[in-house]
Write a protein that binds this DNA or RNA. Structure first.
Lengths: 203, 203
DNA sequence: GTCTATACGGCGATAGAC
DNA sequence: GTCTATCGCCGTATAGAC
């Protein structure tokens, strides 16, 4: 029993590393077994298939990383402060897992039919309370009336997309990994500024 | 000779469709041959390998879609007008090829080491003239001084990322394909507004 | 140029022995 | 639980008929 948990975990960990590094499709189950130091057949004993293993990993990654973001979004923080915290925490999270974005996006492309079915991915987009807050603030005249869907998409775009084109940005601006980290750090201030600016009521 | 061009083109077209739909790794060469209505061996006669075929397709897609964008970026249009045109043309282009974004991003994830070597991808990020223009306008005081790299990344993010999360947006807001088209259409006005707003000089 | 036929090693998955 | 052995499919390659 102790040993089985251990084996399962070793497979899980090895697969997580490889999926994030090389993508799911370019990782073979033999490679996973090899890195985990176990036999190929054990792969299928613990997780029925590669696809199943992937689902388990994806669900765990989403759960682990989305809980704090959801908490912030559903909190009763004042709007501008909520935006600042959300952007900060999200960018910090992606900085620590820079491969997460392209991983998630490849998933979105992989299975275009059954996205709602993947409950894990719902956690990325739980905006009911946030939507209400934006509409209400608009009615009060505290902010410019704006479309909450657009606003949330703007926010996600400015946060996540730079990680997806990380290598392009590094190559084209001739900067190192460390300098890219600095670039991303600057965005923790810049992105909330853009978003809040855009909400400011007009003359 | 006439027939050969035709066969080569049929392979090319079938592969393009499948690569965009399902991704390169999940498309088998037998499937390409089948959709093209030709024999598997012809695949290898015209393009030496699947990777070779992919390179040809990717280069053609980039060339076809990036020329007008580069032309706009390097034109001597006034800055705000240049931003508006760039966003309009880019969003129109992606609307016509909604799978292009996730395709390109999967490529960026596929081969993280040697992106600069893929000349095709350079066309996505040719900003020398644009960068100079932003710096110069900043010096003149026409716009707030801003970092051109951040600004270009902001612009790309707001344009492209919504297409990458298209299915998520549709599912979560419970809208149809057609309504998503409308949502994207609204962004052709919204995105330039955000960007230009952010450039406006402060008090 | 186009096709049939066939072969190679690697893949995901599994049956069955221990 | 863990292993060996095997299956059918994959990308790639080639030999040879028309």
């Amino acid at each position: 029993m102790a040993k089985s948990r251990n084996t399962e975990q070793k497979i899980f960990d090895a697969a997580t590393e490889l999926f994030l590094e090389k993508g799911v499709d370019r990782t073979s189950v033999r490679e996973i077994a090899s890195r985990a130091g176990i036999n190929l057949a054990l792969m299928n004993y613990y997780f029925r298939s590669k696809e199943n293993l992937f689902d388990a990993i994806f669900t765990a990654l989403m759960k682990k990383n989305s809980e704090e973001l959801i908490r912030i979004l559903n909190s009763d923080l004042e709007l501008n402060e909520k935006i600042r915290q959300y952007v900060h925490v999200y960018i910090d999270m992606l900085s620590e897992n820079p491969l997460l974005v392209s991983f998630v996006m490849s998933i979105l492309h992989r299975s275009r039919e059954r996205i709602t079915e993947m409950k894990a991915i719902n956690s990325l987009y739980a905006t009911d309370q946030f939507t209400r807050q934006i509409i209400e603030e608009g009615k009060k005249g505290n902010i410019r009336r704006t479309d909450p869907t657009h606003f949330f998409v703007d926010m996600l775009s400015l946060i996540a997309f730079p990680f997806a084109i990380k290598m392009l940005v590094m190559d084209k601006n001739n900067i190192t990994e460390k300098e890219f980290q600095g670039f991303i750090l600057e965005r923790k201030e810049r992105v909330p500024e853009i978003l809040i600016d855009n909400l400011r009521p007009r003359r």
